[in-house]
Design a protein around this nucleic acid. Structure first.
Lengths: 142, 142
DNA sequence: TGAATATATTTGTATATACAAATGCAGCGT
DNA sequence: ACGCTGCATTTGTATATACAAATATATTCA
C-alpha cells in the first residue's frame, strides 16, 4: 500500500515517520560501503571537519540528544575512527588517521545518496521539500 | 540550534529524521492522556474501526513491518485493549469493550494533536506539507 | 497424493534513540 | 574557603523499530 492510501495519510505523525523510515533505509544502503550507519557517518564527517569538536556541539549540529551522541561516539571509538580526550568537564573528539583516510569515501557515499534520492524525486522538488521540512522543523523547536 | 542552521540541513536524511523526532515528541505529549504511544494509539483505532483486522493489513495500513505490528499488538493485549484469535495461518485482532469505551478519548487526542500542529504550522501550510511528504514517500516505495 | 512453494505470523536479536539520574567539574556569592 | 548552583557528559534503562530465521498453515502442480 502506498503511504498516500493509508487512512492516516493526512496525519503528519504518520507521514513524517513513514518518510523518515524510507529515507533511513535508502541511506543505510548507501553507507553500507563504508560499513557505517548514516548517523555514525554524519557524526564522523563533522569530527573530521572540526577536529576536537565537543559532544554538546555535535548534539546541536546533528539535532540528537547528548546521550545519543555519547553512544554514537562510543561505537566509533570501538572502530578506531575517533578518540576522546576528557579534561575537566569538557570532552574533545578527534578523528584518527584511519578516519581521515576514510573521508573521501564518506563524501562519496554522501554524494551518492543525494544523487539517488534526487534522481528519484527530482532535483528541484527534493530541494524544495527539504527546505519546507526544515521550515516546519524550526517552528517546532522545543 | 535550528534545524535549518545545521551544516546538513540540505540533506533529506537529516531533515526527515529531525522532523520525525520532533513530531514524535509532540504526539507523545498528546497521547499521554490515554497512556499510549502514538503508534499504539493509531493501531488501536484501526482495530476498533475494523474489528478482526489482520496483522498483515495493519502492517500495510500503518506502513510498519509485520514484526513491529506483532510487538505493538502484544503490548495492547497486555493492557487488555485487544484480543487475538489465531486460526490456521491467519490471526484476527479484536478490540475489547475497554478499548471501545476508550475510543472517544482516542479521537479527542488525535484531534487535539492535529489542532496543535496545525496551530503551529498553519492549517494550509501543514496540509500542503503532508501532501508533499506523501508524494515523496510514494515514490520511494520499495 | 505428496512435495515444493508461498503466505501469515511470531520470535530472537540487534539498532537507534531518548529520558532521567548520576557524575564530575567550574564558577559564584558570601 | 566552602557550599550552592549550573553545565557537560556519561550511564542505566526503556522504547520503537527492523531484519532474519523459525513456525505453521495453505496452495499448487506433477
Amino acid at each position: 500500500m502506498k503511504t498516500s492510501e493509508s487512512r492516516y495519510c493526512k496525519c503528519i505523525y504518520f507521514s513524517a515517520n513513514a518518510l523518515a523510515r524510507k529515507i533511513e533505509k535508502l541511506a543505510c544502503d548507501c553507507w553500507k560501503k563504508v560499513n557505517l550507519s548514516p548517523s555514525h557517518a554524519y557524526l564522523l564527517m563533522v569530527v573530521i571537519e572540526d577536529p576536537g569538536v565537543q559532544p554538546g556541539t555535535l548534539s546541536d549540529e546533528l539535532q540528537l540528544t547528548p546521550s545519543t551522541i555519547t553512544r554514537l561516539i562510543e561505537k566509533l571509538e570501538e572502530k578506531k575512527l575517533v578518540i576522546r580526550t576528557t579534561e575537566g568537564k569538557v570532552t574533545n573528539v578527534y578523528p584518527t588517521p584511519k578516519a581521515k583516510d576514510l573521508y573521501p569515501r564518506l563524501k562519496e557515499c554522501s554524494n551518492n545518496f543525494v544523487e539517488i534520492y534526487s534522481g528519484i524525486l527530482g532535483k528541484e522538488e527534493s530541494a524544495r521539500l527539504v527546505q519546507n521540512i526544515n521550515k516546519i522543523s524550526d517552528k517546532l523547536q522545543d
